[in-house]
Design a protein around this nucleic acid. Structure first.
Length: 424
RNA sequence: GGUGAGGUGGCUGAGUGGUCGAAAGCAGAGCUUUGCUAAAGCUCCGUAGGCCUUAAAACCUACCGAGGGUUCGAAUCCCUCCCUCACCGCCA
């Protein structure tokens, strides 16, 4: 959520930045400002009436204590009450409308991010590693089914399309990856491990920005008004919602493994084959809560922490920066990490590292008490460290051997208990 | 799921219809006294919004789990919901 004061004071700057995302946001800013001035006018009037009424009530109390007649004052107070009620209705409506509008305006992008309307304008910042030379590379579905690592047909039977069931050594590999990633980030990168709930309430989803705008993308448990998390970012960032942290606690760094549940509404038919786009997938997520002064540097180190995963696994990757038209709703700056997948002859997004500035923090009233003794909004960041399913794809496709087996990176051997995947 | 007891400021904890944003204590900040330490005394110390503004203060309003209701007036009375604790039942 953007600061309404910032909108009032520098509307043109906000409009200019929002225009990085595309057209149409100017009208939203104007609308929220109109509602805001209406709301404040109502509120001020109401407050004056209330002050007057409070004063009358006190006088009534004094008269009654002295057993004197107070009926005239009571009558007057009643009249005030009636007028207040009508103002109250208009005021409450304006307030709700303002909040809805504010929650629906995306974050202002950082002014240094690349301009562009879609993913084709995202610049490649750096590339690491060399793609392996593989004759007639198979894709991960062919490799996985041949080696019995997972079973798409039976997963579809028990849940539907868009789900996978890992089996045998395939399931063991998934578990090995989770352990490897959590160990790496907690031992080497200084993150605190978290294992949060997978179902969260409406306030939590609103705090990180999924609600109210993207309810259609979520799986919900409507009877109890709970939602399945689309990423661990949601429960972990909201862990400190409505808190005032001490500045010397910061930055807070959390790593969490969770499954992620996404309806993928609007993407039916895309990437339907295999593990690339599913309604449920595993991910290890990194979350940071920082001060405004350090958030920029923390985004760089967060991205480096995610890149380290691919370096240790020896998987070729590249880092791109998202342009204005491609950046997510709440983010002000985002780096995506894409791993090379020989079977697809293309790059797969395995991590998205973003800074949200104070956008999420304002939504969830996440603050810290600074050295000046005053409260300030924190900055929040998160990045995948990394998505498991696509990492899995990359491991199979990059590690495939002419004899049909798959060689695993050495660092995984102790976690997996073997050096390669072979047919059972 | 049932029954009972509760949810008040960073914490503890008073307050059952009228100058209550809320006693007191603890913690915290500042000052005074004291040769240091210790101790004592005094002062300050919640959040958000509005108004006015260069800004702040002052001032006004809201907030005693959340939302409704009763009343001239609600932390206080009524209703609904949420959460915590205890016991019972059930259960991985």
């Amino acid at each position: 959520m953007l600061d309404i004061r910032r909108l009032r004071e520098t509307p043109e700057t906000v409009k200019t930045l929002l225009a990085f995302r595309g057209p149409g946001y100017e009208a939203m800013v104007d609308e929220v400002l109109a509602v805001d001035s209406q709301r404040r006018a109502n509120e001020t009037r109401w407050q004056h009436l209330q002050a007057e009424r409070k004063n009358l009530s006190k006088q009534i109390g004094v008269l009654r204590a002295k057993k004197e007649d107070s009926s005239a004052l009571e009558e007057e107070s009643k009249k005030l009450g009636a007028e207040m009620e009508s103002i109250q209705a208009a005021s409450a409506e304006a307030e709700e409308k303002q909040r809805d509008l504010l929650l629906s305006i995306p974050n202002t992008p950082h002014d240094e991010i690349p301009r562009g309307s879609d993913a084709s304008a995202n610049p490649v910042l750096r590339t690491w590693g060399d793609p392996p030379k593989i004759d007639q590379a198979q894709d991960h579905v062919a490799i996985g089914t041949r080696l019995g690592l997972f079973d798409p047909e039976r997963a579809a039977k028990i849940s539907g399309s868009g789900f996978i069931c890992y089996t045998g050594q395939g399931a063991r590999l998934e578990r090995a990856l989770i352990s490897f990633l959590l160990d790496l980030h907690t031992r080497d990168h200084g993150y605190t491990e978290m294992s949060p709930p997978f179902l969260v309430n409406r306030a939590t989803m609103t705090g990180t920005g999924q609600l109210p705008k993207f309810e259609a993308d979520l799986f919900g448990a409507t009877e109890s008004d709970l939602f399945l998390i689309p990423t661990a970012e949601v429960p972990v960032t909201n862990f400190h919602r409505d808190e005032i942290l001490s500045v010397d606690q910061l930055p807070l760094k959390y790593a969490a493994y969770t499954p992620c549940f996404r309806r993928e509404a609007g993407s039916t038919g895309r990437d339907t084959r295999g593990l690339i786009r599913m309604h449920q997938f595993d991910k290890v997520e990194l979350v940071k809560i920082t001060t405004p002064e350090t958030s920029a540097a923390e985004l760089e180190s967060l991205t480096a922490d995610a890149e380290r995963v691919l370096q240790l696994l020896g998987l070729p990757y590249r880092v791109i920066e998202l342009c204005g038209g491609d950046i997510g709703f709440g983010a002000c700056r985002t780096y995506d990490i894409e791993v090379w997948a020989p079977g697809h002859n293309g790059w797969l997004e395995v991590s998205s590292c973003s800074s949200f500035g104070d956008y999420q923090a304002r939504r969830m009233a996440l603050r810290y008490k600074g050295a000046d003794g005053k409260n300030h909004l924190c900055h929040t960041l998160n990045g995948s460290g990394t998505a498991l399913a696509r990492l899995y794809v990359a491991l199979l496709e990059n590690g495939q051997q002419p004899d049909g087996s798959v060689h695993l990176p050495e660092i995984l051997h102790p976690y997996f208990g073997a050096a390669k995947l072979t047919a059972a």
